[in-house]
Design a protein around this nucleic acid. Sequence first.
DNA 1: ATAAAAAAGGGGAAAAAGCCCCTTGTAGTC
DNA 2: GACTACAAGGGGCTTTTTCCCCTTTTTTAT
Lengths: 210, 210
Amino acid sequence: MNKTIAIVDDHNLFAQSLKGLVNSFQEYEVLSVFKNGQELIDYFLANKKHPDIVLLDIRMPVLNGIETMEWLKDKYPSQKVLALTMEHEEEIIIKMIKTGCRGYLLKDIEPDEFFFALNCVSNSGYYLNEDFSEALKCPKEQKTFKNFSQREIEFINLACSERTYKQVADEMNLSPKTIDGYREALFQKLELKSRVGLVLFAVKNKMVSF
Amino acid sequence: MNKTIAIVDDHNLFAQSLKGLVNSFQEYEVLSVFKNGQELIDYFLANKKHPDIVLLDIRMPVLNGIETMEWLKDKYPSQKVLALTMEHEEEIIIKMIKTGCRGYLLKDIEPDEFFFALNCVSNSGYYLNEDFSEALKCPKEQKTFKNFSQREIEFINLACSERTYKQVADEMNLSPKTIDGYREALFQKLELKSRVGLVLFAVKNKMVSF
DNA sequence: ATAAAAAAGGGGAAAAAGCCCCTTGTAGTC
DNA sequence: GACTACAAGGGGCTTTTTCCCCTTTTTTAT
């Protein structure tokens, strides 16, 4: 079965030549070519079949690459996306990678390298070339631990399970109403809207183990 | 011209079998096998011809992987190095990558994946597999060992957010009742008791990104 | 010692989640 | 044509969660 690719790029000449290039290579097939991010979104909403890989130009009118990427990440987090750029734009590229795209390509890439990148993304999930290593050199992992009390941490851990609050209360030897108090306090402190939000927070901050 | 590889590993059995594997594959050739980092350094100092790729075991006596890596980076910054580990050791792996190695491999890797990694490093310079995405906080590959339909996957992703089912239904252009159907089906299939359970399942199975 | 703040408990109501059993339409298969 | 699988939608109900505003008790800091 062929892998399919969507191209999002407002430079029609480039997009079309890329399409020709891809279609001359039997393993891949261009599913669609879009002029901007909005067109891609419309397509995703209207069609069930989505491309294996999206080639996404970063600089575009209407809906730029980052915005499009954010939408895709929200709605289809597993969608594989390769960013396309004209030149090195380090900060944007880092942002794209952090938003979840699987690599980026310069538009003057050699065909060989281009197909190699497709294979990388398709197989291992990521294609990161040397320039990106620069981005890796800046460590910015910092745990912004809000100061939770011991009791709160216990509560969070128990809330990250298939327990009702009543059961959590029992385990902590507290009244359900007290648990409700913990919940409210945490929701406010962390700007949460629901218990799912609390679980996601705990996961993101590695407060729970799996 | 063949690409050459040096293997640095104190587990002789593994190093020798790797050597056999590599030499059976015509494109690559094993230049040397070393028992520890010091031996590699001695070789580099004594010989002009250096391998294209160094496979470097992280846990070693005398001079471990990180120390060896630091030396290589200092003296031969362009040397391509792939780290080898027995298990996932996230922090060390990140450190290796930051020190400049081009990726890492688990020792129980499949031969296909192994050669793919060699090609990645040889061509684009980097091979980064799924586990490394942890460090980048990028979305993970979906492991669909349970066969979920496309629609179910969408539902799961949307359910892993602070959305009510009503909002999920809106996003998917479905009636809340249909969503209720998805929920029930999944709960039964996965033996879940609550939405939190579903979120935890998705997290454990890396179906959602953070 | 005393004031402040954190922890614990509560009433009552609305919203959301969860449950069981049911119908319709569509697509594929035999 | 009959059979199966499945996606979509629904009625009616219970339980759980969420919210807002409140009191009492215990700790902590000045």
